Simulated scan of single mutants.
Amino acid sequence: MPGRVTGYAWGVGSERLTFDGWIAAVGTRSGTRVVVGHWPRSPFGPFSDVMLERADGWRTLLAPTAGVAEYVGGVYHFDEVLKAPVGVHRRDGVWEVAAGPLELCFRVGRRRALGLALRAVPRPLARLPLWAALADGPARVLTGVRTRGSSRPGCRQWYAAGDLWPIVTARASFGGSDLGPLAPVLPPVRFGFASAPASPSLVRVLSTVERDVP
């Protein structure tokens, strides 16, 4: 399986999987925050998934297959997991997402200074856990997010961002109800060890998850 690295010590092994793609995060006036993962390259093949947190704190995962639902649900925290087709279509800076009861369309603006700086980081360097450790401090200061951490015992994660665009407009509905216009991603989402930037953003990212296995 591509992206998998397995090693063993003292009877415990580690499974390392990498996911190469994009993460988009938007807030809405209703208080619902939506995080979309679009992964053209992953150990599960190309797929997209959606994490959604309502204003009352209820967290939902929308996943396209049982395998993706089981894996993502085992790494992050949700109150419910729904298996539903998740489609992503992008053209000319506009992204359209259809995931079960969710409909989302957003447009990205021109990249800014931080996006240009991230593009300048060599990809081989960005893939290293050491780079995630070095970038963690500046990322907290500049965007309020973390680049490494742990969402569950025996699970370690790190992110390498390779580009960033602001999301300038969005419209979303869930179950046919309009979620309202674009708003900051606040309060922070609580799926894992880190939230998304408060400013709605699209990030080109390499996500690595390492878990202990028997």
Rank of each mutant, 00 (worst) to 15 (best):
L130R: 13
W131V: 09
H89F: 13
A170M: 11
S207F: 12
A172E: 10
A120C: 04
P122D: 10
A194V: 14
P2I: 09
V88H: 07
L202T: 09
C155G: 08
P138K: 02
G67L: 04
G13H: 05
V72A: 04
T32S: 09
R140T: 04
G87K: 06
S195N: 09
V81N: 04
A194C: 13
T28F: 00
V189L: 06
D136G: 00
S207G: 09
G180W: 00
D56T: 14
S207E: 14
E103K: 14
D49I: 07
H38A: 12
V203M: 13
T32C: 07
V5H: 13
S177Y: 13
R91Q: 09
L62S: 02
F78E: 03
L52I: 04
V213N: 05
W10K: 08
E15C: 03
L102A: 10
L182M: 03
S199R: 15
W39Y: 15
H77A: 10
V121F: 06
L202Y: 12
A55Q: 15
P43C: 03
G45T: 00
W131N: 04
L128T: 15
G137Y: 02
G67F: 02
L186R: 13
A66E: 14
T208P: 09
F44H: 13
R4M: 12
S201M: 03
P85M: 05
